[in-house]
């Protein structure tokens, strides 16, 4: 008896929730509003948003703070979509079709449960900002063409599980912002020095001992630049310079002394320190049940 009552209660609740969502979608259709906000509506699946894919003209879809588990391939039918925000959902898989969206410029997949990206993910034609903060990604989870998104201005990979950053990162010629905060990164590739437009580099909270001297060629300490590098087990000379400020670090890694130290360090193959942070409690981890 009791369980039946409970069932009917949640059923009513579901239909009320869906009615609300439906109203938002109907409104958008009637008013021709190209921007759709469905933030924090308890949505668990795209089936709870009937009529969404008929809104062929929307340019922004914000679905943050829901419980969406997967993205249907039909998402690519929203041809005019420029901004897709899925921050804080339960997404584990992405459809391949996502990368074919012809106008998608900003994609936020932060705080989901992604452990891999689909094959061909790097095929986005005009993507400028990609946010993958706080997922379960590492270097093995990236498809081969990941760094071919030439139009990319900003790449957010903070709070993931990377130990290495592939040298192909140097192919992102338009990159201005690279966030690698709080991963397990042991070594940065010298190709980061190829990112001549980089103005923001966040590498704090990793397992870095040294920086490739090539980073010294970037403009990371001007008034329009950001360099965050605290919470790494830096070798003493870098740690000492960091005490006085990041501009001193950059000046130091440009010196011949440092280049020598760096080559020695590389030749010696000093083992990296073990990971410090326990990440098992992250909400991006798959829930057991």
């Amino acid at each position: 008896m009791g369980s039946m009552e409970q069932g009917s209660v949640s059923c009513n609740f579901l239909s009320a929730k869906m009615a609300k969502v439906k109203r938002v979608i109907d409104d958008a259709r009637d008013t021709q509003n190209p921007e759709l906000d469905l933030v924090d509506k308890g949505i668990a699946s795209f089936e709870e948003m009937p009529g969404l894919f008929a809104l062929a003209n929307i340019t922004r879809l914000s679905l943050s703070h829901n419980k969406i588990e997967s993205l249907p391939p039909a998402i690519a039918n929203l041809e005019h979509l420029e901004i897709l925000n899925l921050f804080n959902n339960h997404i584990e898989d992405l459809p391949t079709s996502l990368s074919s969206m012809p106008n998608l410029r900003i994609l936020n997949l932060g705080m989901n449960r992604l452990s891999k990206l689909p094959r061909g993910f790097g095929a986005f034609p005009v993507l400028e900002v990609l946010d993958l903060t706080y997922n379960n990604l590492n270097e093995r989870a990236l498809p081969g063409n990941f760094f071919m998104i030439e139009s990319l201005r900003a790449l957010y990979l903070g709070d993931n599980d990377f130990e290495f950053i592939p040298p192909e990162v140097g192919m992102l010629k338009n990159l201005q912002i690279l966030v690698l905060r709080d991963n397990d990164i042991i070594l940065l590739p010298k190709e980061i020095g190829d990112l001549q437009r980089l103005r923001e580099l966040h590498i704090q909270g990793n397992r870095l001992l040294v920086l490739p001297p090539e980073i010294g060629t970037l403009d990371l300490v001007g008034s329009k630049s950001v360099l965050r590098m605290e919470n790494n087990p830096w070798v003493t000379p870098i740690a000492d310079q960091l005490q006085v400020g990041v501009s001193h670090v950059i000046e130091y890694i440009r010196s011949e002394t440092y280049k020598y130290l760096y080559s020695r360090q590389m030749a010696a193959g000093v083992p990296p320190p073990p990971p410090i942070s326990d990440k098992s409690k992250k909400i991006s981890r798959k829930k057991e049940n």
Partner: peptide, 10 residues
């Protein structure tokens, strides 16, 4: 027009 929360677009 575009100054908004990066997480929810408000």
């Amino acid at each position: 027009d575009h100054f908004a929360c990066a997480l929810c677009d408000t």
